[in-house]
Design a protein around this nucleic acid. Sequence first.
DNA 1: TCTGGGGTCCTCACCCTC
DNA 2: TCTGGAGGGTGAGGACCC
Length: 496
Amino acid sequence: MRAAPTILHLDMDAFYASVEQASKPSLRGKAVIVGGLGPRGVVATASYEARRFGVHSAMPMAQARRLCPNGACLIPRFSLYRAVSDVVMALLRELSPLVEPLSLDEAFVDLEAGGTAFDAESALETGQRLRADILAATGLNASVGLAGSKMLAKVASEEAKPDGLLLIEPGTERALLAPMSVRTLPGVGPATGEHLRRAGITTVGELAEAGEDELVRMVGRSHGVGLYRMALGLDDRPVVAERDAKSVSVEDTFDVDLHDRVRIRNEVQRLADRCVHRLRDSGHSGRTIVLKVRRYDFSTLTRSETLRGPTDDPAVVREAAARLLEAVDTTGGVRLLGVGVTGLADYTQEDLFAQSMAAEAAAEAAAAGEGGAVEPAGAAEAAGTGGAGGSGGPAGPGGPAEAPERAEPSDEPEPARERRWAAGSDVRHAVYGPGWVQGSGVGRVTVRFERPGSPPGRVRTFRVDDPELEPSDPLPLVGESAAGEPAAGGPVPEEG
DNA sequence: TCTGGGGTCCTCACCCTC
DNA sequence: TCTGGAGGGTGAGGACCC
């Protein structure tokens, strides 16, 4: 039986760069590169204008600047992207309760489950209407793929880019896939692609011809079976609306390799605090603490430790991370450090301890004579840092277990007192109003004063410590604040 | 001036218990 | 009492995705 093409895959075109272009009128139709601006930054997204110069995501920013010297390089503004993403996801949820977000700019929707489409014709109609609604609500273009499975719907949206819609008719899948590169299939990255290429397999058709046994022999059971099915166009994975997080982690790459062991220890403590902050924000605790170290030569190693029970206590995570660091040789230098927590739960050993105390109290009050069923010993031990015994960790003498005071400012404007102005960040001037930082250096900062609904604005330069200039929040792309005008329909494709 | 950050999933080795 | 295999938990690393 052939499935109706009612799985929809939505992909916002060059999302971060398109949001920047919609938000900064002077950048429309220009090459825009969003990513880390430090010496080790990489490109997160490039506008289609920048892609014409060979710039693509994951490319080192320095290389992108060489390829596209006139492109606007901007830091990501995740709070704005999240806000725009929320608008888009809300439109998807109007179509169906089964919406599976993959990232801020991508999602699957099961249209049939929402009763919004049941065949090719109704699916096409829904897809077109969705694209129009997204354009009206955000000013951005989106590409839509429609097919009978997630894999094919994703292939379809990829083919539809930019700003298009494609439906794969049931029965045409194999012929469509056959000439495509194996890299088209989800799960085939550089390593598997090269592995297959060495075996003479470069297209999906050749993959299907190789047969399941051969693929299992080449890439292992799980991957081989999956690849073979995908090559035949078979994919019965359902659209899953709710996915539980499995881990929480934070990591930092340093502009310069760290050599000083004390500094490395301090950074690990700082990362542990940030990680716990994120963990608590997500309402989780976790049992396994993971330390990640990338050395000067880019070799990466991880060390992990599993506690007796889940925790969200910063002191416990800090101490575990410190113990793990003791087992790592950092001579030669460290370029990245990370701390993560896996084995997530939505309770902590401390909760269990509290529960058991409550149960005991209740039992005593009832004077029933039955003992409490919950054993608190392990809880107390885990809460008091598993290393209390002879593990020889740096375990401080019971530091306060309070939440880390450090706010996580990754996508917030820099505090004014630091007077550092990252390219692309939002500012407001007491006289000239809202604008964005076009560049800064030698004690000066250049600001372009424009807003989403306005025509391209003028540029002015100030001293970096100008008291009238302040960091500010992003303005909405479409809405009341844009001088009453709706935002223009996303990037204007013209030769730059 | 090479190579981010935040994830998921899989495989393999090793140890322990039954 | 010793041995061997199965299976689960843990730790480490790799591949992949956006």
